[in-house]
Nucleic acid binder design. Sequence first.
DNA 1: TCATCTCGCACTTTTGAATGGG
DNA 2: ACCCATTCAAAAGTGCGAGATG
Length: 474
Amino acid sequence: MQHSCDLKPNFSIPVPTLPPTAPESYSQTNVRMSLEDSNLWKAFHECGTEMIITKPGRRMFPQCKINVTGLIPYAKYILLMDLVPVDGFRYKWNKDKWEVAGKAEPQPPCRTYIHSDSPAAGSHWMKQPISFLKVKLTNNTLDQHGHIILHSMHRYQPRFHIVQADDLFSVRWSVFQTFTFPETIFTAVTAYQNSKITKLKIDNNPFAKGFREQRTNTVSRQRSLRAHVRPEKAQKRQSPLKDEEEEEQMQSEFQRPFYEGYNQEEVVSKSKDACPVKDERFSPWGCEQEHSNNVRTESPHSSETRDIYNTEQLVPGPTSYHPYRFHGFGKSPSPSSSTSSQSSRRPSFNSRPSDVATVPEQDNKNCSLDTMPSSCPVSLAPAPNTHQDYTGMLNMALAPAPNKPGVISHIYNHYGAEQSLTQWNGPPHSQYGSSSFSAPHHPSEYSTQSMHHGYHHGNMADWSQYPLFSYSCW
DNA sequence: TCATCTCGCACTTTTGAATGGG
DNA sequence: ACCCATTCAAAAGTGCGAGATG
């Protein structure tokens, strides 16, 4: 499966400072990203992926691993990953299904993980799969280690960003290309809720091997002993592994060849009909769907019901990406001082300080499709029940590597729960392929997304409330 | 009372330093 | 002195269940 980058709408408006023949325009239109282990992700997705989050930080499994093609081999790129809320709800696990439990909590500071190889040449990124193995998730909002902070019982989606930039200083002047894979949507949990997910993880995660055979013997012995002491609990927490019948059933489900034999084109068309979340047998989201009809105007399945295996080019809106600046660098990242080719090529970005960069955070919520200026992010009309004002911050943190200077930076990011994917990703129709670029509604706004460059954010006041941190990846 | 979170356990895998040979 | 392969101990990562927390 691949995510293609169709930037037609984004390049439909003239960008005076960027000649159409610029290398970037070439790369932007050809960059493609695909998800490694996509079958595994789909397997988890069909059960309702859960990711453990702990205070010290927990790795993701399945891990985020991507393939990138279409980069300029000699140009340098920076790869980033972050996690955005899928919707504005908190969930609970009730009788084998996830249900909406209420409104989402205010989002913690949004942190962006910079791949440790960044910046690296396009050839480097393309020669092998890029692993985000060392990304750690935490529920500790005071985390000092640079882990990505999430709320338990909330749903998130990883996003991957490719930025053509010679160094981290020039990122803010560079073009972001954002990719998402709907099958990577997961629910953050502090303890597994769905036993199917537990089993899938044990079966597929090498670190959990100990729980597969030897441990299950010893543990089952221990459990049987404990069951004598607390029989009611032992029964309540009965492992699915013990139930042979259930295990067989699960085996058949898990080993079912997901989308077997689908080529890319077939997947695009068939996945809509065979959308996992609509399959009651596998879907843990059954109840949620009912809720989605009654409660939310933005279905939590919005992404799944899209062509989940289609490709997409998701470009964040201006207020999503522009209002950030690196913080903590030793030199001023002003375009005039920057030596990057991008910055020298596009001096006009500095000449537009009044753009979205300084939009106050409360302006964000007023940025509806009807009223937003051309610089406002493209987003769906906010769902009343999901509205959540939040001026998040993209924290990018880099711990010193032996051969790399230590860099700690923060990036501002405005997003709310209702904006989450819709804002960042652009309109949902963008995920349906090129045909949907006819923009069923508000085509003008869509076209204003254009290219996305870093803009200087005028508001520095809140930065101090977020800790500087190092990132273990470097 | 209940849902959720934290912690320690026993286990496996990964990592990196130490060592030795060419 | 350098490079490479091997070994091995320490660190890191894993799900589980009991107990804590709100």
